[in-house]
Design a protein around this nucleic acid. Structure first.
Ligand code: MN
Ligand code: MN
Ligand code: ZN
Ligand code: ZN
Lengths: 145, 145
DNA sequence: CCTATAATTGAAAAAGATTTTCAGTTTCAT
DNA sequence: ATGAAACTGAAAATCTTTTTCAATTATAGG
């Protein structure tokens, strides 16, 4: 059971988790390492399988519990997809959205959308106050087209 | 067991379903009536409870099966929400998106978004070909604010 | 209107996913 | 080093969705 050095990102996540009052255990380290460095969304069983390669004792329950902590801390987000919404991904940094490859699942983050005019127009027409917007692009990555 | 007249929209849905080769049964009529006229997204159990008021024999399985048919026929869509993605709503007509009230669940459809510049920019930066976009607004309806 | 056929139904069982319980172990502030 | 609180994995419980199956029903054709 080798003890790999954490990547800078996963170390930052662990620090945030610790600052949030959570304890840093081996299975949590492994799960964080997996999620912080993934370029595609992963489901619980997905993460479970990967985690067991590094730390075979890992239980599926622990994966669920880690996802709960990571989501509560704002480090990961649930990803909505046509075939299900039970996969997780690094949360957006500031005002970012995601673009997903429909074939291989690869994820790219982008920023720079400006929906303020549209939002103002829709608020006027509907009488709603808009608090939040979800935007997601789907397509084929350079490799898959 | 009163036999209410179907609303124009639910009659149109039933015609579409029949044209698609499905048979029009009482529980299906009731479920269509509920979904075609709902102003908020409804989950299977939600629909089940409402359907049983009109046709008490309705089984939950039949609700699942009806949703399958309605989704396959393009009459309803699954709605993605922060607290789960198992509720259904009238599908968009053409290029529409939805705006949801985070308090009461009320839904409004809107059109008129133009994301082509953003899409072109993100395609250039990422090397992806973007095929589809999801956009959803969340806020408070006139009643809830 | 009758009939035959295929679709549909509801109950029950099965399968799948997630959560809870619990006793033992580990982290981490003192 | 110590102890309180958090965390762990296994097993059980719970919840959701799908499958199976025998009976019923819709609808096309005569
Ligand atoms: Mn945005
Ligand atoms: Mn659009
Ligand atoms: Zn790809
Ligand atoms: Zn409202």
């Amino acid at each position: 059971m080798s003890n790999h050095t954490p990547t800078p990102l996963s170390q930052a996540w662990l620090d945030t988790l610790q600052a949030g009052g959570y304890r840093i255990t081996r299975p949590l380290q492994v799960i964080v390492e997996i999620l912080a460095n993934s370029t595609r969304a992963l489901g619980p069983v997905n993460i479970y399988d990967l985690a067991r390669k590094e730390y075979p004792k890992t239980g599926l329950v622990t994966v669920y519990r880690a996802l709960e902590k990571l989501e509560a801390t704002g480090l990961v987000q649930r990803v909505h997809q046509a075939d299900g919404c039970h996969a997780y991904l690094r949360a957006a940094n500031g005002h970012e959205h995601i673009l997903l490859c429909s074939l291989c699942g690869q994820v790219v983050y982008f920023a720079g959308d400006d929906l303020s005019d549209l939002i103002a127009r829709v608020e006027g027409q509907s009488g709603f106050t808009i608090q939040e917007h979800w935007l997601q692009f789907h397509g084929l990555c350079a490799n898959c087209q």
